[in-house]
Amino acid sequence: MSNKLYSTDYGKYYLGKCEETIQELKLKEKVQLILTSPPFPLNNKKQYGNLNGEEYLTWFTGLAELFSSVLAPNGSIVIEMGNAWEKNRPVQSLLHLNSLLSFVNNEKAGLRLCQEFICYNPARLPSPAQWVTINRIRAIDSFTHIWWMSNSDYPKADNRRVLRPYSKKMKKLLESGKFNSGKRPSEHVISEKGFLTDNHGSISHNVLELEQIDEDRELRLPYSMFSISNTKSNDFFTKTCKEKGIVPHPARMPLELASFFIEFLTDEGDLVLDPFGGSNTTGFCAEKLKRQWISIEANMDYGKQSIIRFKEPSLNSSIKMGAFEL
């Protein structure tokens, strides 16, 4: 491909519009997971190229058929999308929700919604600033929606790969071997040994906390998210961008979020696709987890800065430049 910016041990990063590049790559039924955070449907256009209004809705809905066509028969699509607000009004827009609904309801795509997730991130800047910090009539928007979709009722998935560490209370219960069994007010009947099997961790929730909501409660990230958090704590990418005077992509997907779904929905060697690659969080996490990956991005500047991720010493990944020399 003439628009390949670079490749690594496991992946390739292309410059161009995702619609055209996906068609050129001939990926039909080869992708196990599409993991992406598309440009948000904002009322004011930003540098990373979002559309707005009905134009956005039409464009986004049309992507469903294209994305579905490249999925493996048991593949998944995971889309992160934040909230949108009406221009100059303290009112949430319905555009992002209508876009997601229209995407999954596109009859030509044959998709279904497997589950909705919420990603809570207290580190997000107070927004929308006008109504939160100036007029002070709204609360901080601190979460994004994540929709997990598939072309199958039973896509590849295993929640045992994204277990959370047991709570202190559960660890004590396993040590004691005793449990208050019997009938609950909910009319569920708990057997004597129903909670005494050590499954090496508890099943993850569909609310993903990047930091704990309750500071007095222990944060129990899934093991996959915890391992990537160790990378984030050192944040080679952000520090290097700062040193070089580079302004990072303004809407980066959290590393923990990407690693969670890659672990949950793929095996080593599977192909992960990000049609809106940006600074390439998806490719970076896929590389660390030994998955094949392809990322596509229309903005050359974001493509250039994404190379920094693969220079992180702990990754030990080789980079080969493509047709575009930097």
Rank of each mutant, 00 (worst) to 15 (best):
L271K: 03
C241H: 10
E29D: 13
L221D: 03
E256W: 02
D214L: 11
K311V: 09
K239Y: 09
K244G: 08
V78D: 05
N3V: 12
F260G: 02
K288D: 06
T144S: 14
K288Y: 07
W148S: 01
F226M: 13
G201Y: 04
G49W: 04
S102F: 04
L27H: 01
L221C: 02
K288G: 05
T36N: 03
L97C: 08
S176F: 03
G277K: 08
K45A: 15
D9I: 05
S76H: 11
L271F: 01
E175V: 05
A64Y: 00
K168N: 14
D301R: 12
D235P: 03
S259F: 06
L27M: 07
L255N: 12
I246P: 03
H205K: 14
E218L: 12
Q92H: 07
T231I: 15
L315Y: 00
N121E: 02
L111W: 01
I137T: 12
R164L: 03
S229Q: 14
S99C: 06
N43V: 14
E116S: 11
M321V: 10
T58K: 15
A72G: 03
Q92K: 08
R164I: 03
K172Q: 15
S7A: 12
E29G: 00
S204A: 15
L42P: 01
L174T: 01
L51H: 05
